[in-house]
Design a protein around this nucleic acid. Sequence first.
DNA 1: TTGACATGCAAGTAGTGACTTGCCTATCAT
DNA 2: ATGATAGGCAAGTCACTACTTGCATGTCAA
Lengths: 90, 90
Amino acid sequence: MGDVFKALADPTRRTILDELADRDDQTLFEICSRLLTKHQLDSTRQAISQHLDVLEAAGLIDVRREGRYKLHSINRGPLEHIVDRWLDRS
Amino acid sequence: MGDVFKALADPTRRTILDELADRDDQTLFEICSRLLTKHQLDSTRQAISQHLDVLEAAGLIDVRREGRYKLHSINRGPLEHIVDRWLDRS
DNA sequence: TTGACATGCAAGTAGTGACTTGCCTATCAT
DNA sequence: ATGATAGGCAAGTCACTACTTGCATGTCAA
């Protein structure tokens, strides 16, 4: 089980979450191209793949295989209460 | 202006925030001793001091000088909405 | 004023993390 | 079957970060 806070510490990973929040079930290549066109992030496929591994280990994304495609979706569960640790949401 | 997410990425810094959430206006030495007794973290004073610098740069703690004491308090402001980026709190 | 206490500064070290590089496996269309 | 597409694995590089170490500054009590 990975660390949610450490997963969120990287700006590229946060941008990946932004894209997955905008559209579910994206493949690795879709994410790469959207990062490039919409955010000028020209990271390599392997770099993004490793970011996705970190996000998955932290439970922040769900992964589903569909033939030769691997579809990624955001999982907002871990985000729900991580900050309530210091906030009294009364 | 530091990165709030990066500041939260370190477990020791999160524990410091826990202690400051429990009691405001603590000095560096108070924080050190509470980390040791309550959390078995035997970090040096300098290490904790640098963590406090990071937390302050991120706006997560407020600092007030009182004579030779430097009093630290939690600032929950940056925590309020950092996660709303991906959550629709309707 | 002097010693004790609370903190500051800065250079160095070691481990971690993001990224690259090169090659390999798997699936699909033709 | 074969080429093209989508993804996986693993070793290596480089920069950053947490931590240490040693000394310096500032404040207070006596």
